[in-house]
């Protein structure tokens, strides 16, 4: 079974590397934001810069999860290759696992430019164990976004997925305090912030990287969002299966 997961992961990674649109999009945007905002305006404050670096990494991970995953799932559903894969002797698990592992690889790859910029151009600092913990927190915090990506991908045609995933991505990232630290946001956004999943995800990363105490509402809501997104993704998957393969 694990050899099949490997085969599917290898195949999807090759596609990601050969047509690196998703990879470039996920890596470019946070790196550019890093250069445009964090380096000139927050680079001298070690804790602030470290937190901002964590936020930018989370932006890349969210982009890979919400946009990358939804678009690739929606596009795959439209290809005649997709029903062919179902005739191969495997259940849905290896392909699904391959998708998740590939998305995680893209997320981690997208952190590299952000980390390099942070190390060279800001006072951000982190110990090796805290960096490892931060990356683990990044993957854990990205879980609801992967599920949202799957939900949109199984629900929408690819053209709609491209648009809708962007519309979902930016407001959630902004309200969650990824572009601007929550304490600098207008009051009503500060109040709303813990209720979007990006805030809880960012709290995990900030806490792992700097040892800060996470916002409890944010963490609870992250779990709530994860469960809700899992249910929605499962529903969309079954609906799609029923339509095309019953």
């Amino acid at each position: 079974m694990s050899s099949l997961v490997l085969a599917h992961t290898r195949y999807q990674l090759l596609e990601q590397i050969r047509v690196p649109l998703g990879l470039v999009a996920s890596a470019f945007f946070p790196a550019a934001s890093m250069l445009a905002f964090v380096v000139p305006f927050g680079g001298d404050d070690p804790v602030g810069a470290t937190r901002a670096t964590g936020s930018m990494m989370m932006i890349g991970a969210m982009s890979a999860a919400v946009m990358g995953l939804s678009i690739s799932v929606a596009q795959d559903r439209e290809q005649p290759w997709n029903p062919y894969l179902r005739t191969l002797p495997a259940g849905p698990f290896p392909r699904f696992a391959g998708r998740i592992l590939t998305t995680m690889a893209v997320m981690l790859a997208a952190t590299v430019p952000v980390l390099v910029i942070a190390a060279l151009l800001t006072k951000a600092s982190v110990t090796a164990p805290r960096l490892a913990l931060g990356l683990a927190a990044l993957l854990a915090g990205a879980l609801p976004f992967m599920l949202i990506g799957l939900f949109l991908g199984f629900l929408l045609p690819s053209k709609a997925a491209i648009g809708v995933s962007q519309v979902v991505f930016f407001p959630i990232a902004i309200v969650g305090g990824l572009f601007m630290p929550p304490q600098f946001m207008p009051e009503f956004l500060q109040a709303l912030s813990p209720y979007v999943p990006s805030r809880g995800a960012a709290e995990l990363v900030w806490s792992a990287a700097t040892g800060s105490t996470p916002n409890i509402t944010g963490i609870v809501m992250l779990v709530v969002w994860t469960v809700a997104a899992a249910l929605a993704a499962a529903w969309a998957y079954r609906r799609d299966e029923g339509r095309r393969f019953s």
Binding site: L14, E15, R18, V19, Q79, P80, W81, Y84, T87, P89
Partner: peptide, 18 residues
């Protein structure tokens, strides 16, 4: 059971990048 069968994909859907 499907280990014993072979099916042709539609050639228009073959993954271009591989």
């Amino acid at each position: 059971v499907r280990q014993g069968i072979g099916v042709t994909p539609q050639e228009t859907g073959l993954p271009e990048a591989l």
